[in-house]
Amino acid sequence: MTERILSASAALAEALHEEMQRDETVFILGEDLTAHAGIFGQFEGLPENFPGRIIDTPISEAAIVGVGVGSALTDMRPIVDLHFSDFVTCCMDELVNQAAKIRYMFGGQVKLPLVVWCPDGAGIRAAAQHSQSLEAWFVHVPGLKVVVPSEPSDVKGLIKSAIRDDNPVMFFQNKSLFSKQGVVPEEDYLIPLGKAAVKRQGKDVTLICYGSGYYLCKEAADILAEQGIEAEIVDLRTLKPLDMDTVTVSIKKTGRAVTVHEACLTGGFGAELCARIQEQLFDHLKGPIKRVAARDVPMPFSPGMEDFCLPKVTDVVMAAHSIVSRK
């Protein structure tokens, strides 16, 4: 049987088709969704196939997320499209004070099955207000799950799990990865939230990544292999809940770790990983943990500057080298 190749966008659309077919309470809400099947074409086929269930809204992010929260509380399964993840700032109360806390502060009386789909990331020259990776903010809020897929097959399996989850899920999908191709199974499959994937085996260093960071690690591992260093790649896929078990098994094997993400360095998820690894696995470490991340500036527009600020394959290679070659 030949393996089917799909783009990340097509994988997303296929998953949404399947879920909307399966469950009539699932609907998608956001700005400018029907005219072009989402501003990135990510919802191809949905407006025609599910009329009335993919809905254009006014430019009112607080109201949009509010509609998601209120309808999730009253027997629906909304997916909210935030247009650009940067616009979470326009609906932070609804996400952080409402969606994240409602079940808890009401003593577990209710479920809140909401997916907030956030196209994030840089690399398309969209500058400071349309290029951020803000996942760490939401990891810091108890009550939200945070998913950041990388490959197309992950997108399909994770969005389906997110939709079926009875809790609010922030789903960050990197814009620069929409066109990435990959093998995507045709069947209805789920990837559980909170389960990392070891995407390459290696014994010398663990590259811990998610989202676009995975592709940097994939290339870096090939280069490192040519240089005689066997890197293991752990793609977290979900940041919350975090699959620390998979990280632990890998670190115990390699004794070395590099965290890789596109979000800027300071306060990024890499810092949380470093903290946990040194707390729990200190005696297994052969050297310091290195972090690869974007520079701590708003994303600049001009291509040369943007590329300079983003983490690169060579950064991952150099970080791995610096701890593997350490005596």
């Binding site: 997320v65 509609v67 009253t74 109360d93 004070n97």
Partner: peptide, 23 residues
């Protein structure tokens, strides 16, 4: 569907309840 400690915090949520009724 709850009291709300954030002033006007309930208004966006009521839109969702209303939308759900419509759906």
């Amino acid at each position: 569907l709850g009291a709300n400690g954030v002033v006007a915090g309930g208004l966006p949520i009521i839109a969702g309840a209303g939308f759900s009724i419509k759906m």
